[in-house]
Design a protein around this nucleic acid. Structure first.
Lengths: 220, 220
DNA sequence: CTATAATGTGACCTGCTAGTCATATGACTT
DNA sequence: AAGTCATATGACTAGCAGGTCACATTATAG
C-alpha cells in the first residue's frame, strides 16, 4: 500500500511517478527494476520515494490495484453483445474485450504481464492469491459449461482451466509483442486480420488442430 | 564458448563448476545470477572463473550446448516405437521422450527453460536463433501433416507451430514444477496418472475443449 | 636443476543497488 | 510573527555486482 503522503499528492505528480514506475517495470521486470532510475525519471528525490512507498514491491502492488480497478471500469461499460451466449462465445468476447483493454494500456499491460508470467512463476508466492482468484472465476465458468454440455466432461476441470489460462496468456503475449511493433496499436488490434488471428487461436482451443470435418469453414 | 583452459581441466573440476552454474541459473535466472556465488559454490577463485569463461553469459551458452548434445544422444537411443506413425502420435512420443529427458536432468532443464521462457522473451535476441531453429523443425513436420490430411489446413502453419510450441512449453513447465515436489521425479513422471495427464493435454491440443462426440473415450 | 609456460589466486577497483536521516522548505494555524 | 506539521531533499552508509591484475603455485620441457 502506498503511504498516505502519496495519496495526498497532486494528481499530476502522482501520474508522473506512476508512469516512471510503469516504464521501469516494463523494461526491467520487477527484480531488476531500480528505484534509483524511477526517482531520476520522476524528477523526485530518493527520500521522497520512500515517503510514498515502502519499496519497489510496494509500488508494484499499487500498479496491480490500479490495473484491476481500471479493468473493472472498462468491463462495466462493455456488456456482452448478446444474452444466452455459448460459453465459448462468452470467453471469446472476454478475451477480445481484454485485448482492447490491454492495447489501450500497452505499457502497463507489458509491465504487469511481464512480471506475472515471467518472474511470478519463480519468485515466491507473492502473486499466488491473485492467480488463484482468477482461476476460481474460470473454474466456475467451466463447471457451468460442462453442465451445459458444452465442454467435454472427460477433460477434467483443472485441465480446462489450465488450457484457458494458457491460451489467454499466449494470446495476450502475442498481442502485446506484435502490437508494440505497430505504429497504431489500437487500429492494428481492431483490424480484421488481427481479429481473425485471435479467432483462429480460440478456434484451435475449441476444436483442436486435428482435421475432422473442417469446422473452421463453418464458423468464419 | 569456454576458453581452452576450461576444456583442459580435469573432468571432475569441470563437473563441479558446471553443477554450481546450473544451480545458480535454476535459482536466480540469467540476469540475476551471480558469478561471485558460482565461484564460491565451485570452490574456485574469482580469477579462475574468468580464465575459463568470458562471463556468465558465456557459461550459460555452454550449458545450452551441453543440453543440446545430451538431448541428441538421448534421442538417438530411443527410436519411435512404430513405423508409419500418425503425426500426432509422433508428436506425443516426442513430448513424452522429451519429458523423460527433462526429468532425468531436472535442474538443468529448470535452469534452461527458466531463462529461455522467462527472460529470453525480453532480453534481446540472444536466443532468437535457437528458437528459430526448433520452430523450423516443427514447421516442416506440420507442413507434412497438412499434406497427409491430418492437420486442418484452414489453421495456418504458423499458428499450428505456435500451438505446438505453446503446449510443449506448458507441459514442460507443468512437469518440472510438479515433478520437483515429488520425492522420486522419474517414478512420478512414469506413473500412469502423470502419463494420463500428459495424454489429456495433448488430446485437448488435438481435439479441443468443445464437446463433440467424446473422442477421448475412444482413445483412452 | 633450470627455464618456460600454464594455471591458480584473492585483494582491489569501479559502479551500481536499497535504504536512512539530518536538514531545509513551505504551508497552514493561532 | 511565531509555532507546528507535512513534505522535500540529497549526501551518506553498507553491501554486492562484474571484472582486473600483480603475484603465487604447479606442470612441463630441456
Amino acid at each position: 500500500m502506498p503511504k498516505p503522503t502519496f495519496l495526498n499528492l497532486p494528481e499530476e505528480k502522482r501520474r508522473v511517478i506512476v508512469h516512471a514506475a510503469i516504464e521501469e517495470f516494463a523494461e526491467y521486470g520487477l527484480e531488476n527494476a531500480s528505484t534509483n532510475r524511477i526517482v531520476a525519471n520522476s524528477g523526485i528525490a530518493k527520500g521522497s520515494f520512500y515517503q510514498y512507498f515502502e519499496d519497489k514491491y510496494d509500488i508494484f502492488d499499487y500498479l496491480l490495484e490500479l490495473i484491476a480497478k481500471e479493468k473493472e471500469d472498462f468491463f462495466k461499460d462493455k456488456r456482452p453483445p448478446a444474452k444466452n451466449m455459448d460459453t465459448f462465445q462468452y470467453f471469446r468476447w472476454m478475451i477480445k474485450t481484454g485485448m482492447e483493454f490491454n492495447t489501450s494500456h500497452p505499457l502497463l499491460t507489458q509491465a504487469v504481464s511481464r512480471v506475472m508470467f515471467g518472474e511470478g512463476l519463480y519468485y515466491g508466492s507473492r502473486f499466488a492469491d491473485l492467480r488463484e482468484r482468477t482461476s476460481q472465476a474460470l473454474r466456475a465458468m467451466i463447471q457451468q459449461a460442462i453442465r451445459n454440455g458444452e465442454v467435454d466432461p472427460s477433460v477434467d476441470v483443472d485441465l480446462a482451466v489450465m488450457v484457458m489460462e494458457t491460451w489467454s496468456n499466449a494470446i495476450s503475449t502475442y498481442i502485446i509483442n506484435e502490437g508494440m511493433k505497430q505504429k497504431d496499436i489500437m487500429k492494428w488490434v481492431r483490424s480484421p486480420k488481427t481479429q481473425e488471428k485471435i479467432d483462429k487461436m480460440l478456434y484451435v482451443m475449441e476444436y483442436g488442430l486435428r482435421k475432422t470435418e473442417s469446422e473452421f469453414e463453418k464458423h468464419f
